[in-house]
Design a protein around this nucleic acid. Structure first.
Lengths: 264, 264
DNA sequence: TTTGACCTTGTCGTAGCGTCAACGTGTCTA
DNA sequence: TAGACACGTTGACGCTACGACAAGGTCAAA
């Protein structure tokens, strides 16, 4: 047989056959006088073996190793390893489909609204009022949700669960509006203190204690002076704060103070 | 933030961030005086979105398209398509694991012994006598099994099933030995005719009729002269025959004759 | 003789970055 | 003040398993 006949027989391209020769997976056969490769039946069997194993998902490198010192033992190990790898891939695919489904279930898919199944709906509702601050909150949550590992993700979803209650959500949106109103306000604005008080009071209990107990994760500028470590919380929090007005920052600092007092 | 901080925050390498800039997936941010890229919170959100979608299995090209004309609709279509693709991948993985399991179940995994689950055991037994002809038969079957589509594979398995009977197998091995004995024999050898008769007689019924009804798939040299089309059956069959002695070929030609007569 | 279907070797392209190289910057320390 | 060290910059090559050329040589049929 010539290379084209061999390739057609086994159902691959001639390029593939030559590639296998190049990699040493298949021995170069004898040449005819005109330089053409001349194949026999044994070559077809060898090629079919390589294809069979390659289609199972073995890399050509692994294949060469497995076929090199031949005789079962090595091949068996490789196949067991392959099976474990295929199992991992199946699991990864399963998770990916879950998350795709979560995204699709997340309804309107506005840019920015993506997260795990639980988060999707809440994130969607969070900013329907068109609030700037709510949008930022949603962005932060989306980002954290993307970054977090499954365990953290679950904790976040639990913390957000109170907002599935329409009443809680409505009150939150009212607070967002009052925060938005402080967009251009200066530090001493008289609306700051009452808003901070209401915010601290209406913060769901789980969320309040989560914040109070993890005060060291709060940006330095929001923390009560002299409290705890001054550890760098990552520059990105500063980037978030830089989009807020001084009055808005003051509100958050007062809320943190209150929570800190509540913890003691 | 500088690029390293952004990358660390979202959990990717700086190379990845620059790659996304290069592809236009992420806008190039403003530069500082020293040429460093300066990122804000919005960039982190955008990067997280890209990562999130990329990890679901979208290609970066698809991603750019989906994010380009933004606003859900396009993205939704892409995600639906992705889900269908993931489903296909799951199915492909399932089949691959099945075939790996079949190979592992195929016991000793001598080089050459591979095929579907059903075939594995039969192929293994076929050549345990160390017969040259049996090895060739096994190789042909292995090759056909590798090439065949699932339907053909099932038909082959059905044809081979009689050999799961130890009695049939033992008789077949005896015939193989008699064929092997003709390795160096010349055409007129007196053992040819009786062997052909026994072979034709002991050929399992399903196999005999399968061959008789598909006579045009039999190599020209084995067919009764002047019968049917002279169509080229593929050079590989000639390659197989070239490894047989004239006496052995004569045996097969006589068997084919007999089957042909039986069909009429 | 020409056409068309083969064959030959060699090179570039693919996806998503990792990993150099060769160099400039900014900060901390001796 | 100089050196060390960690960061940033652009640019280029490497990886898989081939597909798709290019630029030619070979062979059988019309």
């Amino acid at each position: 047989m010539r290379i084209g006949e061999l390739a057609a027989l086994v159902g691959v391209s001639t390029r593939t056959v030559r590639h296998y020769h190049h990699l040493g997976l298949l021995p170069e056969p004898v040449r005819r006088a005109n330089g053409y490769r001349e194949y026999g039946f044994a070559d077809a069997v060898a090629l079919a073996r390589v294809r069979h194993l390659a289609e199972l998902g073995l890399s050509l490198d692994e294949l060469r190793d497995a076929l090199a010192d031949d005789e079962g033992r090595e091949l068996r190990e490789v196949l067991l390893e392959l099976d474990a790898d295929l199992a991992r891939q199946q699991e990864a695919l399963r998770i990916r489909r879950e998350r795709v489904a979560a995204l699709l279930a997340g309804a309107d898919l506005r840019p920015g609204s993506m997260g795990s199944a639980d988060m999707a709906a809440m994130l969607r509702d969070l900013s329907t009022g068109g609030s700037r601050i709510a949008d930022m909150d949603r962005d932060v949550l989306t980002l954290l949700d993307t970054i977090a590992d499954p365990e953290e993700r679950a904790r976040m979803a639990a913390l957000m669960r109170p907002f599935t209650d329409p009443g809680v959500l409505a009150r939150a949106q009212a607070l967002y509006r009052r925060l938005d109103d402080l967009a251009g306000a200066r530090p001493g604005d008289p609306r700051v203190a009452p808003l901070a008080a209401d915010l601290a009071a209406q913060l769901p209990d789980e969320m309040a204690s989560a914040i109070a107990e993890n005060l060291d994760a709060v940006p330095t500028r929001l923390r009560p002076p002299g409290s705890y470590a001054e550890a760098g919380d990552g520059r990105w929090m500063e980037a978030v704060l830089s989009e807020l007005s001084p009055a808005q920052i003051e509100v958050f600092r007062l809320v943190i103070d209150t929570l800190n007092d509540r913890l003691r």
